[in-house]
């Protein structure tokens, strides 16, 4: 033997899948939603997207430098946090607010816990909620869509969920005419945060992740299914006060949250049973916050609360080890 051979413990082959490939696929899957946002909200949405993404990358690099760790921004995880943060912000967020959000997401939401894989909470949602509580005015100033080429300017308005909440607070009833139709909601022609408006674009991205086997159906189905069932129940009891399940599904951050935020691998359970429980919990909390809480939207809070419950869920939903469950046919 002229050259030394490699000695190692089996297995000696690998699937070739890498974390970076997974992250890049998630990044691509968000592009349709980004495209729709830029179409409806123009350059202001684009600048929020760019500031958030670059802000996250820069913060990650600075944190890792300060801690004397290798800089791993090429792995794509910080970029995803940036895009997800932008998708959760109003299109008119001022630049400083977006940048502050990016710093909070990476520094406080991720790096203080030890970086990739160690954070208990979804970093983008941590940033969104910190901003929402600290800067309520800027974070709840929404714009009506002004499609590219329409010549319209962005005009301040309420989101459909906000509109409903206001009406119920004031009159105890559904508003007489909510703006927008179901097809507007589905395509994204409504007020809302940058990424939540178009269910169609989000579903396209999710389909790609399903195809790449990065996303499994468990969390999104349990989450959305629970919201539909529970909100449907309230709607059946009092349709004059509570909106129907389709409205719940399409007007807020549910689709974005269920497919892209709740499914964050790091902060959700690892077993199938755990994922289903996690999704149901997200769904229940979302409906309760939307219908009875102070905020019109509850998806972010619901996911963060369930993130906190993830270690507990993991602990109590351990898969039954082979040979400990059934003894079928044992003689």
């Amino acid at each position: 033997m002229s050259q030394p051979v490699y000695l190692s413990s089996s297995p000696h082959i690998h699937s070739g899948e890498t974390t970076t490939k997974v992250m890049h696929a998630v990044f691509y899957s968000l592009l349709p939603a980004c495209g729709v946002a830029v179409y409806f909200f123009g350059p202001s949405a684009l600048s929020v997207l760019l500031i958030a993404t670059l802000g996250c990358l820069a913060t990650e690099a600075v944190c890792q430098r300060l801690m004397g760790q290798p800089v791993t921004i090429v792995d794509g995880s910080a970029a995803i946090t940036g895009v997800l943060l932008a998708l959760n912000l109003p299109p008119t967020s001022p630049w400083w607010l977006t940048l502050l959000g990016a710093v909070i997401a990476i520094a406080i939401g991720k790096q203080v816990y030890g970086g990739l894989g160690s954070n208990p909470f979804n970093p983008a949602l941590v940033a969104r909620v910190v901003l929402l509580i600290s800067f309520p005015v800027q974070m709840t100033t929404w714009s009506a869509p002004a499609p590219l080429g329409s010549g319209l300017d962005l005009v301040t308005t309420a989101t459909p969920l906000g509109e409903w909440k206001n009406a119920v607070m004031l009159t105890g009833k559904m508003p007489v005419d909510l703006q927008g139709s179901i097809s507007d909601y589905f395509l994204g022609n409504m007020a809302g945060s940058i990424g939540e408006i178009s269910a169609l674009a989000l579903l396209l991205g999710a389909a790609y992740l399903f195809y790449k086997r990065i996303l499994t159906w468990h969390i999104p189905t349990a989450f959305i299914g629970t919201v539909i069932l529970l909100s449907g129940l309230f709607w059946l009891i009092n349709p004059g006060k509570y909106p129907d399940p389709i409205f719940h599904l399409l007007t807020g951050g549910l689709v974005l949250g269920a497919f892209f935020m709740a499914t964050d691998m790091v902060t959700s359970p690892v077993s199938i049973k755990g994922m289903l429980l996690f999704g149901v919990g997200c769904g229940v909390l979302t409906v309760l916050i939307r219908l009875f809480g102070g905020y019109p939207e509850g998806v972010s809070f619901a996911i963060l609360l369930m993130n906190a419950a993830t270690p507990l869920i993991d602990r109590y939903t351990r898969p039954k080890t082979f040979g400990t469950l059934r003894q079928k046919g044992a003689q």
């Binding site: 995880s77 959700s268 690892v270």
Partner: peptide
Amino acid sequence: DITGRSEGPCIRCS
């Protein structure tokens, strides 16, 4: 056939 790969943190992808 055996290109070495560097280990990263667990992202709990399950």
